[in-house]
Amino acid sequence: MTGLFQNIKGDKVIWAVVALLALFSFLPVYSASSNLVYVVGTGTTIGYLLKHAMLLFLGFGIIFAVHKIPTHFFKGLSIIAMPVVLVLLVYTLAQGTTIDGANASRWIRLPVVGISFQTSNLAAVVLMIYVARYLTKVKDKVVSFKESLLPLWVPVFLVIMLILPANFSTAAIIFFMVMVLCFMGGYPIKYLLGMVGAGIAMLCIFILLAKAVPDLIPNRIDTWVSRIESFWDPADTESDYQIEKAKIAIATGGIMGNGAGKSVMKNFLPQSSSDFIYAIIIEEYGLLGGLALLFFYMLLLFRIVVVANAHESIFGKLLVVGVGIPIVFQALINMAVAVELFPVTGQTLPLISSGGTSIWMTCLAIGIILSASIKREKKAEETVENDETNPLEILSGQL
């Protein structure tokens, strides 16, 4: 055990926060899984708990492995991973099957372990690393839109357009975070405003095309419209079923909560162990429990900013911000949906909600942040930082 802790490097506060969130997740996941067992009639509560434990165990294995990789290696890895991600997204969109009766054009099934894998989560992490690499390359240079169109914006819009038909919320979050990262990386604001306009125009064209030819591309536009309408029309309780039950759970929890495992609304919320787990947490642990959880996410955000600010390379700073901020942003969106401050999006609560891909990709991002927090010899990183040769040559040279 002592040898294991000696091999754990990086920001100890981040390690502690991630471990505490993961340990706490067992309580609400075990409690909410009874909905799937006794209402839906699938599996057992112990089975879901063991599955969640296995996913977290593999997730921490990812954190441990990734945090050992020197930060500058991710530059070359992003170039290799980007075409792989694009192929996976095309395959995911094309296969268009269903999993447990749900639209599964955002998932692919991993046949060996029998777990569905959401490729958009991997694409989000890889794209943020890729954008951080490009911004580092053009830092302190006069950037023209024409020069950045092919190496930066074409991959960004390819990823977003491949995710958009099946998962609007994830596509919108990725686009927003890319804009934030580009702004922080010093990319010209006038070009960013132009890309925002282009993104809105492309979304409108996609919606019109999908409405005109609905069988051309599988999409969830009707679901998007229904969720937005129910958000703006509180009287539409039929389409606002999940939000209504979530509000009842929150109101029932009060200040102190009803106690662990004593949620009633978990039997009525279809996504009680994933999308609406925050409502179940408040019902069982009260307002104090909900605020405590929010505090830990804010502490994680604070440490992410500290790590980014402390890193000596531009790439390291942008990398930490690019993969770290989306974790907290996703958590805030999940919480906002539960308290009806935001339309239903389908975003899970990082490190808390059940699910394989979301846990693994969050752990991948955490591992990258911890890698950047480790004090290493900077000579190699500075060499790579100033070298503008082919990133694949850089990677092969470092390996």
Rank of each mutant, 00 (worst) to 15 (best):
T98N: 04
G101K: 10
M82Q: 11
T92D: 01
I62F: 05
H72G: 03
Q118R: 10
N121P: 04
V138S: 04
I115M: 13
L122K: 07
R133M: 13
I62P: 05
A65W: 08
G96Q: 14
F73T: 02
M128N: 14
L58E: 02
R106Q: 10
V90C: 13
T119Q: 04
S116N: 12
G61L: 03
L86V: 10
R109P: 02
A81Q: 10
K75N: 02
K68S: 01
T98K: 02
V87D: 12
R106A: 08
N103Y: 07
N103H: 00
I69E: 03
T92L: 12
Y130K: 11
L110F: 01
R133E: 14
I69A: 07
F73D: 02
P83I: 07
K137M: 14
L77D: 09
V90P: 08
A124M: 11
K75G: 01
V138R: 00
F74I: 04
L88A: 14
S78A: 15
M54Y: 12
L88F: 15
T98M: 07
T136E: 12
F73C: 06
T136I: 02
V84A: 15
T98V: 05
V138G: 03
M82I: 09
F74L: 05
G101E: 09
P70I: 05
M128E: 07
L55D: 03
R106N: 07
F117R: 03
P83C: 13
I115C: 09
A124T: 10
L135I: 03
D140C: 08
L55T: 12
V85K: 03
P70S: 09
M82Y: 06
I69W: 10
G96W: 08
I69T: 11
T98D: 04
P111G: 11
I129Q: 04
V138M: 04
G114I: 06
V113G: 13
F60Q: 08
Q95C: 09
K75A: 00
L93W: 05
G59W: 00
I115E: 07
L88T: 06
T136H: 13
A123C: 11
L77K: 09
T119N: 12
Y91D: 06
I108D: 09
K68D: 04
V112N: 03
L122G: 11
F74A: 06
D100A: 04
A123E: 06
D140S: 11
Q118I: 02
F64M: 09
